[in-house]
Design a protein around this nucleic acid. Structure first.
Length: 998
RNA sequence: GCCCAUAUGGCGGAAUUGGUAGACGCGCCAGACUCAAAAUCUGGUUCUCGCAAGGGAGUGAAGGUUCGAUUCCUUUUGUGGGCACCA
C-alpha cells in the first residue's frame, strides 16, 4: 500500500465537509478559544504561496487547541471593498461586485485545497449589504458620540447637548477647535445650524476638510501609491494637493487609551513600539510669538522650551494659514513660487528630501523674553499637520535646523557652550545654558520647567501634550465602498435612522469620478436628488470590526449579540502581517474601545495576542541583455560638426541599439564578457578572450553594418556595452537555473523569435534574486501547483518548515522533497509496499517510549510558542528514530498521529482510521507528556579550557562540584592542556558544561 | 529622512534563560540494491592546515562586558517592511 495523497486528501476533505466537522457552536461546556486570521483582500491574481503561511500557522494552532479540548472559533472571510476592483471596473467595464465575487470564488477554491478547518458557515464579506449595514450602523454610533475627556470615554452626543444647556462648554474643551468657548445661554441662543457645527467639532465621526492628491488630468483623487515622483502612475500627469470635504474619525481622542491598552495586550515589542511611535505622544510647550509690525501671532510647539534663547529663525509650513498674512510684498513672489513647488510634493518626499530648500517670508517674530527679532521662513520639512505647523529653529541643538542655517547663512547662537563645536548640532539636555539670559548656568533638562512656568505666568505660552497621530481620514472619493448613512440638508449632516439601513450602494454602469473631485456617486441623479453623501468609506471600515461579526454572522437584529460576544470575548490569537501595524490594528483597537464605551461589548481590546507572520518572498529569475551607445566622434577627439541629418540618424541608431532587443545572453557568459585580460597568458585566459571577442563581434556586427549603411563610419564610435537584466517567468526555469528556451519562445509572445546566446551553444542560464512575490515580477508560485504535485499535507508542513513564521523568507521548492519524504517515511511505519500492514499491537520498549515522549515534550512546547519549523523537525527526528528502532507499535504510533493532526490532517485521519478507529481523529485527546521516560543518570559534559572546547567527559548527574573537579582535572586531555599551569578557577554548571580557567 | 525588523555552511534554517555553533531538511560526494532508472537504504559533508592523530579560524563589520557571547552593550554596513487614500 502506497501513500496516495491525492486520493486520501480528497476523500477526507469531502468527508469533513459532509459531516460538518468544522461547524462551531456558540454554546459549549468547553473553554472557548478564538483563533483569527487577517482576512484577505481578494485580488484578481489569486493566492500565492506567501498568503497561506499565516493561515497554515493559525490552522495548526486552532486544530491543536481543539485537540486540547477547547471550543475553537476559527473563521474566514473577505475584505471585499477596495480600490483595485474599482480600477479593474474602469478598465474592463465589469462591475466590482462581479469581479470581486469571481475573485472570492477563486480564493475559496484555493483555500479549500489546503484543508483548513474554517467554519465556512460564518464567512463574512464586507461588501455585502447584510454586513455593511452594521458597518454603517457603527458609523452612526460614532457620529452620535463624543469623547468625554473627563471620563476618558465615549458618550452619547445627547449627554453633551445636556451639558451645553446646563453649563456651556467650559468643562469640555472643543477638540476640533479649541477657540470655541461658550456659556449655557450662548449655546441656547445659537442657530440650529451653528449648534450642529459646534457638535460636529465634538463627534467621534465628523466632517471636515483635508488635502488629497488631486490629478486634474484624470479628474480624480489618487492614492499615495498611485503617485510616483509627483506624477500619476497611470499616464504621468501632474498631481497637486487639493482640499476636499472629508469624513474623519477622532482617533486622537483615544491616543492615551490606545497607549495604555498596549500594556494589556500580548503584541511583540516591535509592534508596540511602532504603534507608540505612530501615536507619538510628547510633552512640551506651546509658545506665542508676536510678529513684528503685524497683528498676527505665531504659535509654536516645542519639546525643548529650554532652548528658547537659541532660536535663530522660525520655520513654518508652506501651507500655514499665516503665510499669506505675514509675507512682505518684496518676498511675495518668491514665497508663491516656493509654495507652488511644495504643492507638487508628497509628505514623504518632503521629509526624505536631503536638499535644503526654503524661502524667507520677510517677516520677523519677536522672542518674548529678549525681544530679539527672528526671521520667519517657510520650508517643506515642516509639515502643517504636526504640532502647530511651525517650529522654532535652534541650529546649535538640532541637526536639521543647523543645516538649514548653514545653507541660508543664518547666524547661529550657541547656548550650550563647549557642547557645540560649530561643525554639527548637539541635541544634548545635559549642557549648562549660556547666552540664555535668566537661564544662564542652568542645566537644560532643569530649565524646561522653569521656562514653561514663566511662559504661563506671562500668559505667552502653556504646557502642552502633543500627538503625532492625526485624526483618521475616513472617506474616499470612490464608488466601491460603504455609502455613508448621511444626508445633507442646508449644509447640515443628517444621519439616517437605523431602520433605513443598510443604505445600499447603487448599481452604476460607469465609475468615473464626479464633478469637483467628488466620488462617482455624485454622477447618479437619484442619489444626488436625495442629497445623500457622495463619499464612501475607506477600506479599513469593514475590517475594523469584522472579528465581532464572525461570532454572530447571521444576526439581523444587531451587529453581534452581547451574550455571544461575551462568550467568545477577545480574539485569543490574531495572525497577520506587520504591514498592518499602524493602520488596521490601530483602527480596530479604536472601534473596539468606542463600542466598549458605548456598552455594546464587554472588552476594550480586540486582540489578546498578536502574531506577525513574515512574507514569503519570490525567487525571481533574470536573464541578461546588452546594448551599445553610439558616441559622436567630436565628443572624443577633434571637433567635428555633425549635420542635422547625421544627428538624427545617430539618434535613431542609438534608439535601436541602446538595448539589443530580442537577444538574450546566458548568465554564465556575463562574467566572461565583463572581464578582460590585458595580457592573456594561460590557455584558459586565451580561450576566455576569444569567447568574449566572438560574442561582442556577433553583437556589434549589425551595428557596424548600419553605421556603414548610414554613412556614419568616420563620425561615430561604439561605446562600452550597457548591461541589462529582465525578468523571465520562473515556470520556464529549472532547478539548476537553466531556461527552457524552446517552451519560452513558443508560449510567451515577449520571447517570440528570440535569440539566445550561450557559451556552449546549448544551455541558457539565468540568475536569481529574491524579491517580493508579485505578478509583475513573474515570480508567483500558486499553492495549487505545489499541492497537485505533493499534496496539501506536504505543502502545509513545508510552509512551516521553511523557517520561523514571523520571518520573511524566500520561497524555494527545492526543499519540499524532504518534507514529502518524511510523510512517506511515516506511512511506511504503518504500511509496507510489499508486505502491506506492518503496524502491530506489541508492547513498546522503554527506548521507544523515550523517543515518543521526547517528541511530545518538544512538539507541544514548540506548538505553544508558535515555533512550527522546529516542531516539524522534531517530527522528523521522531520518525527517523522510530524507523531506526523498527518500531511499528500502535502504542507509540497512535499518540504520534494525534500530535501530527494540526500539521498534516489528511494523512493522520487516514492512518487513524486504518488503525481501526471509527471516530474522527480531529477530536482525539492530545497525548500527555510523562517525564519519567526521559530520566537520565549521567551526561556527556563538554569540558572547555579557557572557554575553548577540548573534550567531553561523561559524569553522573548527581556528582558534586568537588567530584566533578577531581574527575575533570584527572582527565588526560585536560591534563595535557593545563600542562603545569595553575588552575585559577573551575566553573561547573550542572547539566550544562565545565570550564577550566588557567 | 523617520520608525521597526533582520544578517549563522553551497541553500532554508537550529541553538527556548549567556554554557558543546551548524539540529532538521535541501543540495553535493561516496557506496548498497537494480540489466538500467526511479524509489529506498548506508556513510560523509562549515572553512582551513595535516596521510593521520590533532591544530587554527568561524555566526554582516569594528570595538566592549564576561571564566564563557549567535545571544548583552556601543558604533557601523547591507537587506526587508511601514510612513496616514494599496490592502
Amino acid at each position: 500500500m502506497e501513500y496516495n495523497f491525492r486520493e486520501i486528501e480528497q476523500k477526507w476533505q469531502d468527508w469533513w465537509k459532509e459531516n460538518k466537522v468544522y461547524q462551531v457552536s456558540n454554546v459549549s461546556d468547553k473553554p472557548k478559544y478564538y483563533v483569527l486570521d487577517m482576512f484577505p483582500y481578494p485580488s484578481g491574481v489569486g493566492l500565492h504561496v506567501g498568503h497561506p503561511l499565516g493561515y497554515v500557522a493559525s490552522d495548526i494552532f486552532a486544530r491543536y487547541k481543539r485537540l486540547k479540548g477547547f471550543n475553537v472559533l476559527h473563521p474566514m472571510g473577505y475584505d471585499a471593498f477596495g480600490l483595485p476592483a474599482e480600477q479593474y471596473a474602469i478598465e474592463h467595464g465589469i462591475h466590482p461586485a462581479i469581479s470581486t465575487q469571481n475573485n472570492i470564488n477563486n480564493y475559496r477554491a484555493q483555500l479549500d485545497k489546503i484543508g483548513f478547518c474554517y467554519d465556512w458557515d460564518r464567512e463574512v464579506k464586507t461588501c455585502e449589504p447584510n454586513y455593511y449595514k452594521w458597518t454603517q450602523w457603527i458609523f452612526l454610533q460614532l457620529f452620535h458620540s463624543f469623547f468625554n475627556r473627563q471620563k476618558q470615554k465615549a458618550e452619547s452626543i445627547e449627554t453633551l447637548i445636556k451639558i451645553f444647556e446646563e453649563e456651556g462648554n467650559v468643562h469640555h474643551v472643543c477638540p476640533g477647535d479649541a477657540t470655541i468657548e461658550f456659556e449655557k445661554d450662548e449655546w441656547k441662543s445659537y442657530t440650529d445650524e451653528y449648534q450642529q457645527e459646534v457638535l460636529m467639532h465634538y463627534r467621534l465621526a465628523f466632517c471636515g476638510y483635508g488635502e488629497v492628491n488631486w490629478c486634474e488630468a484624470l479628474g480624480t483623487v489618487l492614492a499615495n501609491d498611485e503617485v510616483v515622483n509627483g506624477v500619476s502612475e497611470r499616464g504621468g500627469h501632474p498631481v497637486v494637493k487639493k482640499k476636499l470635504r472629508q469624513w474623519y474619525l477622532r482617533i486622537t481622542e483615544y491616543a492615551d487609551r490606545l497607549l495604555e491598552g498596549l500594556k494589556t495586550v500580548d503584541f511583540s515589542d516591535a509592534m508596540k513600539e511602532m504603534q507608540t511611535n505612530w501615536i507619538g505622544k510628547s510633552t512640551g510647550a506651546e509658545i506665542k510669538f508676536d510678529i513684528k509690525n503685524s497683528k498676527f501671532e505665531l504659535h509654536v510647539y516645542t519639546t525643548r522650551p529650554d532652548t528658547i534663547f537659541g532660536v535663530d529663525f522660525m520655520v513654518i509650513a508652506p501651507e500655514h494659514e499665516l503665510v499669506n498674512g505675514i509675507t512682505t510684498p518684496e518676498q511675495k513672489q518668491a514665497v508663491e513660487n516656493y509654495i507652488t513647488y511644495v504643492k507638487s510634493r508628497s509628505d514623504r518626499e518632503r521629509q526624505a528630501e536631503k536638499k535644503i530648500t526654503g524661502c524667507f517670508t520677510g517677516a520677523y517674530a519677536i522672542n518674548p523674553f529678549n525681544k530679539k527679532q527672528i526671521p520667519v521662513w517657510i520650508s517643506e520639512y515642516v509639515l502643517a499637520g504636526y504640532g502647530t505647523g511651525a517650529i522654532m529653529a535652534v541650529p546649535c541643538g538640532d541637526e536639521r535646523d543647523f543645516k538649514f542655517a548653514k545653507h541660508f547663512n543664518i547666524p547661529i547662537t550657541n547656548i550650550i557652550g563647549d557642547y557645540f563645536n560649530g561643525e554639527e548640532a548637539n541635541a544634548t539636555k545635559e549642557a549648562k545654558l549660556s547666552n540664555s539670559d535668566f537661564l544662564n548656568g542652568i542645566v537644560m533638562k532643569d530649565a524646561i520647567d522653569i521656562v514653561v512656568n514663566k511662559l504661563v505666568a506671562l500668559g505667552i505660552g502653556k504646557k502642552k501634550i502633543n500627538y503625532k497621530m492625526r485624526d483618521a481620514a475616513f472617506s474616499r472619493q470612490r464608488y466601491w465602498g460603504e455609502p455613508f448613512p448621511i444626508k445633507w440638508k442646508n449644509k447640515i449632516a443628517i444621519p439616517l435612522n437605523e431602520n433605513e439601513l443598510p443604505l445600499l450602494l447603487p448599481k452604476v454602469d460607469a465609475y468615473s469620478p464626479g464633478p469637483e473631485g467628488e466620488g462617482p456617486l455624485a454622477n447618479i441623479p437619484e442619489w444626488v436628488a436625495k442629497e445623500l453623501e457622495t463619499n464612501t468609506m475607506p477600506g479599513y471600515a469593514g475590517s475594523s470590526w469584522y472579528f465581532l461579526r464572525y461570532m454572530d454572522p447571521h444576526n439581523n437584529e444587531t451587529f453581534c449579540d452581547r451574550k455571544v460576544s461575551d462568550y467568545w470575548n477577545q480574539v485569543d490569537v490574531y495572525i497577520g502581517g506587520t504591514e498592518h501595524a499602524v493602520g488596521h490594528l490601530l483602527y480596530s483597537r479604536m472601534w473596539t474601545k468606542a463600542l466598549y464605551d458605548l456598552g455594546f461589548i464587554g472588552y476594550d481590546e480586540p486582540f489578546k495576542k498578536l502574531l506577525n507572520q513574515g512574507m514569503i518572498t519570490g525567487n525571481s529569475a533574470f536573464i541578461n541583455m546588452m546594448g551599445f551607445n553610439l558616441i559622436k566622434k567630436n565628443q572624443i577627439d577633434k571637433p567635428y560638426i555633425h549635420t542635422e541629418d547625421e544627428l538624427k540618424k545617430i539618434a535613431e541608431l542609438n534608439n535601436k541599439y541602446q538595448i539589443i532587443h530580442n537577444t538574450f545572453l546566458s548568465y554564465d557568459l556575463m562574467d566572461s564578457i565583463r572581464t578582460t585580460y590585458s595580457k592573456p597568458e594561460t590557455e584558459e585566459e586565451i580561450k576566455h578572450d576569444l569567447l568574449r571577442e566572438n560574442v561582442l563581434n556577433y553583437l556589434i556586427k549589425p551595428i557596424v553594418d548600419d553605421i556603414k549603411k548610414e554613412g556614419l563610419l568616420e563620425k561615430v564610435i561604439i561605446g562600452f556595452p550597457n548591461y541589462y537584466k529582465i525578468h523571465i517567468p520562473i515556470e520556464y526555469v529549472n532547478i539548476n537555473d537553466e531556461v527552457d528556451t524552446e517552451r519560452l519562445e513558443k508560449e510567451n509572445p515577449k520571447f517570440k523569435d528570440a535569440i539566445f546566446i550561450s557559451s556552449d551553444g546549448k544551455t541558457i542560464k539565468c540568475f536569481r534574486e529574491v524579491e517580493k512575490m508579485s505578478k509583475s515580477k513573474l515570480n508567483v508560485v500558486n499553492p495549487n501547483d505545489v499541492i497537485n504535485k505533493y499534496g496539501s499535507d506536504t505543502f502545509r508542513m513545508y510552509e512551516m518548515f521553511l523557517g520561523p513564521v514571523e520571518q520573511s523568507k524566500p520561497w524555494d521548492t527545492k526543499g519540499i522533497e524532504g518534507v514529502h519524504r518524511f510523510l512517506k517515511k511515516l506511512w511506511r511505519l504503518f504500511f509496507d509496499e510489499l508486505k502491506g500492514k506492518v503496524w502491530n499491537e506489541e508492547k513498546a520498549t522503554a527506548e521507544e517510549l523515550k523517543v515518543l515522549h521526547k517528541a511530545i515534550k518538544k512538539i507541544e512546547e514548540d506548538t505553544e510558542r508558535f515555533s512550527f519549523n522546529t516542531a516539524v523537525s522534531a517530527f522528523m527526528v521522531c520518525v527517523n528514530e522510530l524507523a531506526d528502532l523498527k518500531c511499528n507499535k500502535r502504542e507509540v504510533l497512535e499518540p504520534l498521529l494525534i500530535m501530527l493532526v494540526p500539521y498534516a490532517p489528511h494523512i493522520t485521519e487516514e492512518l487513524w482510521k486504518a488503525l481501526g478507529n471509527t471516530k474522527s481523529i480531529l477530536d482525539a485527546a492530545y497525548p500527555t507528556f510523562n517525564p519519567a521516560y526521559l530520566v537520565e543518570s549521567s551526561k556527556d559534559y563538554p569540558v572547555s579550557i579557557n572557554g575553548k572546547l577540548r573534550t567531553n567527559i561523561n559524569i553522573a548527574l548527581y556528582a558534586t562540584q568537588e567530584q566533578v573537579e577531581q574527575i575533570v582535572l584527572n582527565n588526560e586531555v585536560v591534563k595535557k592542556w593545563i600542562e603545569d599551569k595553575p588552575v585559577k578557577k573551575l566553573i561547573f554548571v550542572k547539566n550544562k558544561m565545565v570550564n577550566v580557567v588557567i
